[in-house]
Simulated scan of single mutants.
Amino acid sequence: MALIIPANYDPHLTVRETQEAIKYIRDTFQKEFGKEMHLERISAPLFVTQSSGLNDNLNGVERPVQFDIAAIPGETVEVVHSLAKWKRMALKEYGFNPGEGLYTNMNAIRRDEELDNLHSCYVDQWDWEKVITKEERTIETLESTVQTIFKIIKHMEHEVWYKYPQAVKHLPEHITFITTQELADRYPDKTPKERENLITKEYGCVFLMKIGDKLTTGEPHDGRAPDYDDWQLNGDILFWYEQLNCALEISSMGIRVDEKSLEEQLKKAGCEERKNLPYHKMLLNGELPYTIGGGIGQSRLCMLLLDRAHVGEVQASLWPEDMRKICKEHKIVLL
């Protein structure tokens, strides 16, 4: 996506007011989120060892930031892409039971991200994970959890409206559920991104389900790592975003792989060698709890609720100089 400059853009808040609003949204959301979802806040790592297999491989082509640590010779250390696998290990290590879960502040560097209005090389999200029983690995569990998260985001709209009525974005009343195959059948001549935009514009907010596996066309809707989400039980929460005339992804989430789906998905992705990594061995041996989890973008949520044109208005990151210059000329102040 190239840089988009909305016509007659007005951020409504000064930079300092924006900073105050960012803090208010983050503080309020995580408190509400933890309470409604029955999650405890825990501390999480910024980096993991490559040999642990705990890093999120995303689409398998992104390069993690790597370095070594003098006191731990022979190990390559990677800045996390996300905490998708680490959280599940933490639930086991800390003795969480079904119905209990955790959330954490996750910070990552994604060096291969294409920088535009929605994408930054700095990622900040609330990563969360909850223990469920094997019987709860169902579409019903997934949809019920999505409804709860949507309700919390909708409640945040009202909270922000009380403090910043001139700046808040009004969100749709409901979230609509649709699978990637249903979407492909509906718009067979469109690209996956075009389909997402069309369906989200129509309904305002959708949960797009079953991402990662091949559609009847032989191609997947989008890439998804084979070793954390179950491709039949996952999805993205998308809001229609008028400022940029596109769908805005706020959360990627899902019920995590069990022994069977991990085996199948590693085979489909041609990554069967991962079965020898410590994390994958534990999962295949049934040593890890069954879980549901995901990430909710902190800057994306602030951007959505404050109706901003660029993610750089609500987070401090690096941007090309020409992008900074063009943005500044149109009242888009990148932090």
Rank of each mutant, 00 (worst) to 15 (best):
Q232Y: 10
V79P: 02
V160Q: 00
V146G: 10
N117W: 00
A184I: 06
L171Q: 12
K92L: 12
V168L: 07
F29G: 04
R224N: 07
Q19S: 12
E249Y: 05
D27Y: 07
E32V: 03
E129Y: 00
Y203S: 07
V123D: 06
L306C: 08
L208Q: 07
Q232L: 12
N245F: 09
E136P: 10
L46S: 14
L183P: 12
W86F: 04
D127Y: 01
H119I: 00
E329V: 00
I69Q: 10
K201P: 11
Y228C: 05
V48F: 01
V168M: 03
I255Q: 09
L334S: 07
V61G: 06
I250S: 10
L215Q: 10
E219H: 04
P6S: 05
W128C: 04
W240H: 10
L13Q: 05
P98Y: 01
H170L: 15
V333W: 13
D56Y: 03
L248F: 09
Y162K: 15
Q50M: 14
I153D: 07
F150W: 01
K151S: 15
P188A: 10
K281M: 05
R41D: 08
I255Y: 04
Y187A: 05
G101Y: 04
D10S: 11
E20T: 11
T180C: 15
Q181G: 03
S120L: 01
L277A: 08
E182Y: 02
I69F: 04
Y162F: 13
N117F: 00
E32W: 02
A247H: 14
I152L: 05
F67S: 06
N105H: 14
A184D: 14
H81S: 03
D68S: 15
N55Y: 04
W128Y: 07
Q147T: 14
I237N: 07
A7E: 15
C302W: 02
E259P: 06
R256L: 08
N8K: 11
K214C: 08
D222N: 15
D230V: 10
G297N: 03
L306G: 09
T148S: 11
E194G: 09
L262F: 02
S317R: 14
L208E: 09
K92N: 12
E272Y: 01
F67M: 02
H158Y: 13
E219P: 01
L115E: 09
I178R: 04
F33L: 00
D189T: 12
Q181I: 08
V77A: 13
D68Q: 12
L277M: 13
R274C: 06
I149H: 04
E17P: 03
E313K: 06
F150C: 02
